[in-house]
Design a protein around this nucleic acid. Structure first.
Lengths: 208, 208, 208, 208
DNA sequence: ACCGTCGGGACAACCCGTTTGT
DNA sequence: ACAAACGGGTTGTCCCGACGGT
């Protein structure tokens, strides 16, 4: 699909993308229909199929956008930053539709084209980076396989978020993630490191 | 729904239920169609609508069946049994379509009628029971809120299973659940209890 | 597609078939839409797709019906009967929509599924039969390859009919076929045979 | 349509025309889409709609071009030249896409705007010219209505070509046209004339 | 003048979940 | 418990006009 050149096109494309995110977030890939997206975006099918070649392609675009939309406040790499990142993600899940839709589509990806775990691997990599730094700083228990734990963390995180969504509409998400960390930390972090960590929502830093 | 009396009716109902499970497991609620289920079951739409009043109802029946289909080998309540239960569930997830479909439908339940977290609460209750027993036996660390942990466990478990499904088609599921436990146990169990636990797939006991 | 059992179904199926014939005759395969057919048949899309699995399938059914719908008055095989047959076909082309549609679809068959010349081969075979009889009766010139001529005849006939359709809406069809025969006969038939042949529309015999 | 002035425009127009011919030849008027033409021509819809006001207009342009593209080697008017012309047309049908598309569109013209038989009348006129010359030279049987025969010839020719296309992809076209002539000639030409005619593909003369 | 991007709106074929008569 | 039909929905493509740069 052609990258939009004119600025009106850019706006249209984004209106569609946002509407698609809303619909996919609410109804899932199969549950949401393009006609509904069109209605919500206030455009026409012609516009949608000009910018995206198929429903699948549209879903993929939402997933891609989600990641670009993410911003983590700077800080020193290590366990604390890992915690802050997960908390920031939790916050985003509650306020950022695009992000939420991206996550849901990632879960449902088997329903449409790709069955690749790329989005998950990306998160595993991100978490691993912080864990490697933490290891260098002596925050981890000896013998912890950082990548193995990162993978466990991604799974547990996603499941926690899903359950929170179903049972409370994500109202208790922050709290549930914090609980998850409390049970998880003793298995990976040294007692001294734990005693210095702060498990709470990151303050809303300024965004660029 | 009329409780089937005739023997043939029972068989028909079960053929439909099994076909529905297969289809829902593979395509989800919205992705799978009744006509596809009918084709796979080798019956007709009439038969389906005789036994179930709607697609939603059929999905609900699959979810209900799943639970009835579950059997845990007897044993003394406590941490070890909790572990064994999770391992048994992992095994069932790999071999039991009905169970698998039930889990998927539980995740997608927002897509259709109910948004109730009943299935999850049931698991939370089951896990809590074992944790209460564990507490009585002194296997837990002091100050652990058993229900809170049970809820975390359900979330983490479900997420782990989902990730395993996406990345390896559940080939590494047992292994991932074991890893999850290794990181989780130090946060809840006393060191002595941990040293006596066995984290491995439960032996296939005889079924009643 | 299931062969209809109930008699209402038979009627519905035939209403659809007739409407399809009318539409295909008028607009061709690609030009005619199923919704138009549905409108004309006074049913719904559901009914159409119950009886026929696709637009292509529907077209095929029309082509098949066309042939079943054809009836040739009995008579002694030979040249005269061959002429009568072509005249009867010309008459049918003017009054029988199903037949007309079948012919048009045969011409356009490349547009959809099959590119097989089966319908044409059937006519070649029919004509060859009469020519073989004619040969036995000494009506043909020596050295005439009956199948070769039958093939030429099918082509010439079809082209004549097409031109008549375009230029006069088939008003002069009978006349044009007669003209064609006048130019063609000296190339295949013996002068004596020709002198006894009657080139004119066959009388409308009773139909069974 | 504006007659193109700039040299680049001429090339664009011709690329479109050729692509349109290819698509119409393969899929017919309704079966072929402008987007497919655009894709094949390597331009955009804007270009198409700059040069042609509608799909219909584009089809008309293809039909017009076809005729301009035709060239008959010079020779003395009469029966032999008529035969040579038909053979040349057969050759063109096999190698010239534009011509092929023109013929197909002429057959399908009812599908779009005009239902005029202009293209056919043109051929009837051309053939009539040669037949008039043949008559003057005493090549015809007495009492032959030249225009009537020309009309029959156009029909038979077109039908033969269609059948050849369907059954062999026009591989046997030359041969089938030759066969047609063998059956047709005794009905119009004097035996002496026939004995001097050569029914075969015209040699590829140099083109201007 | 030429042609590319963008969008509109209608409609295509097909399938859905469901109800009705048998 | 089936075969038949209903309506309304699906994604996707069609032809075309309008605007914008070159």
């Amino acid at each position: 699909m052609p990258h939009p050149r004119q600025e009106r096109a850019v706006r249209t494309r984004e209106r569609i993308l946002r509407a698609a995110a809303e619909v996919f977030d609410e109804f899932g890939f199969h549950g949401g229909s393009i006609s509904r997206i069109v209605r919500r975006a206030g455009t026409t099918m012609g516009a949608v199929y000009h910018h995206f070649s198929s429903k699948e392609d549209l879903a993929r675009a939402v997933m891609a956008e989600q990641d670009a939309d993410l911003y983590f406040p700077p800080g020193e790499d290590g366990l604390q930053r890992l915690l802050d990142m997960t908390m920031e993600v939790a916050r985003q899940l509650r306020i950022n539709v695009l992000f939420r839709a991206g996550v849901r589509l990632a879960v449902e990806q088997g329903d449409f084209g790709m069955r690749e775990s790329a989005p998950y691997e990306l998160w595993i990599k991100r978490f691993t980076e912080q864990l490697v730094a933490a290891e260098r700083r002596g925050e981890l228990l000896p013998g912890v396989d950082v990548e193995d734990f990162a993978r466990t963390l991604v799974g547990a995180y996603n499941g926690t978020q899903l359950l929170s969504e179903i049972s409370t509409g994500r109202a208790d998400l922050i709290e549930r993630i914090a609980a998850m960390w409390r049970y998880l930390l003793p298995g990976v972090a040294s007692p001294e490191a734990i005693s210095q960590l702060q498990i709470e929502a990151a303050p809303e830093g300024p965004r660029p």
